[in-house]
Nucleic acid binder design. Structure first.
Lengths: 119, 119
DNA sequence: TGATCACTTGCAAAGGTGTTCAATTGTTGT
DNA sequence: ACAACAATTGAACACCTTTGCAAGTGATCA
């Protein structure tokens, strides 16, 4: 293998590491979308959307085709959906753990709201 | 929820987006490791390793504790393991697709080692 | 106490990423 | 052929990350 797998993985995750790209993938994992449909859902400049789409295209996570004067994008690896779900599970799990350890943080508790957090 | 979920997800994936951090998580998902054990496995300056560990700590993906004069790290969300596996599956799937679409690019292989993998 | 080991932190240089605007391509309708 | 639309590209700038070195902390042991 030319590129070590852990490096390919890192690149892959970096590709996912942008809010707009996450939203795009979430929308596409429901159904194919034309660019202007994505624009309706995501608050972003058209050119910026295009940039993000091109990042996803470069990584082969999505493909585009032209249909009736629009460009339609689809997910090329349906398993991406599972990945996003797995991420949500982990995220919610971590959040729950945090809430557990520091229940005194969230509501504006007056007395001794000192945060100790192992520096 | 204060931070939109898709933004938290992006942050989460960005945390995974570094080769050293991937390796650390892979090692930790096998078993807990002391810092110097990680150093033996990963080719990296100690201070750099420390920085990467601190990124993982900040995101609550790992926790550290001191034991017998060493600092031992462990994974705090065991599901991370599934996530790494899911990533590998997708990565290998994408690679296979690429190999399929452009068999003429890599080696000039003549006879049919074709792989088909229906989009 | 002082030396040493095991890590961590601060910081500056270098490199990389994201955002926007303007310009461009390509397609469709008149 | 031209205008209008849809999407993309290029370039400049700001911002963030990574890296390595030097310095620092904090525990353990002679």
């Amino acid at each position: 293998m030319s590129v070590p797998l852990y490096q390919a993985k890192a690149e892959f995750f970096r590709t996912l590491g942008h809010p707009a790209r996450i939203r795009i993938l979430e929308l596409l994992s429901e159904r194919d979308h034309a660019v202007h449909e994505l624009l309706d859902e995501i608050t972003i400049e058209p050119s910026n959307l295009s940039q993000q789409l091109s990042v996803l295209r470069r990584s082969s996570m999505v493909v585009s085709r032209r249909r009736d004067g629009e460009v339609v994008y689809s997910i090329s690896a349906p398993e991406v959906r599972d990945l996003l779900l797995a991420a949500r599970r982990i995220l919610l799990g971590l959040a729950a753990q945090l809430a557990d350890l520091e229940p005194e943080l969230t509501p504006p508790q007056p007395s001794g709201s000192q945060r100790r957090q192992a520096r």
